[in-house]
Amino acid sequence: MPHRTFFWFILPTALAMILFIGLPIVSSFFQSLHIENEQVLMEVENCDPFGCTTNVRVDVEATEKIEAENPLGRFNGFGTYTDRNHLAFDEIREAWDNKTSIGEFKDTVLNLPFYKALLFTLTFCFAVTPPVIVLGFIVALSVNTLAKKLKGFIVFGTILPMIVTPLIGSLVLFWMIDSQGIIGASIQILFDDPNLSLKASSNLTWITLIIYGIWHNTPFAFVVFYAALQTVPQDPLEAAFIDGASRFERVRFIVIPHLYPVATFIMLICLMDNFRVFEPIIGFSAEGVAQSLSWMIYQDLRNENKMLFGSAGATSMLTILGIAFLLTPVLIRTWKEFKTER
């Protein structure tokens, strides 16, 4: 296809992507270099019959004027990146100097907002992915053995958790697990502890969120494994059968090696998608004990008084760095695949 024709065909979609994906990233970066304007303070002298007092108050007019001139705020360089709510270099240095033990230092660091969120995000990613792959594989194997007539309905039932949006999915589970819901109440009766509830401890909340993550992500792994199972070659399976391999041995030595590349694909997609975990935290009302990087950005943008564009931008940039780190293997794989295709 000549360059000219190609250009006109690709123009609309390229324009959409550049304007609404490329530029926002640049805009986010730009915002992260700025910080909100300071309020202009002025001293006012209040005189009444008992004498004069001077108060400091916000000069609304002057503040608004600055705001109108500089809506983005003042330039702050990389200041926002290193402040307490982000990488917190000063706080970490201080904690390191004053530490009495490594454990204490670790606690201090993990209580800083950014590191707390990073810890949860990574824990979520790496706790959810392995069970998803194992469960997805088992479900795919067992659906594959079913009669054809049943398959349609069972596949539909299995993929439901993936189809609903994470917010609705987590709400539906939350309403059951909540201390007043069916599962929550039953557990309270079972352990005879009326105070046992999801919100009782942060560990329980984290576990619930991870269980939700597994519930939501397994269908995806199942579908991909299920399709891949159809491509397993029959000849080696037959040969192994003749040589007396048991069913388990056939799965272990023929099917699993054949599915390795598919499993890596699922793992990478899962890690990437779970790195943005955010809606379940809202669905489970778990903001108090579990914050993720995406949730931090949402919170900055939802700030009641003033949207903290600078802070949200800085967290966004750091999140993108994390994604880039996770994405590298996918890119390398795609690169190789494309090279061999040519």
């Binding site: 992507m17 990233i25 805009s27 943005r276 931008g313 966004s316 993108i320 994604i323 890119l331």
Partner: peptide, 25 residues
């Protein structure tokens, strides 16, 4: 090939980071 790779990178961007870039403009 490069267009497809860029698209793959864009696909991986968390939506909330994009939204934080939209709001101000």
């Amino acid at each position: 090939f490069y267009i497809l790779i860029i698209a793959l990178v864009f696909r991986a961007m968390p939506h909330i980071t994009l939204v934080s870039g939209y709001l101000f403009p």
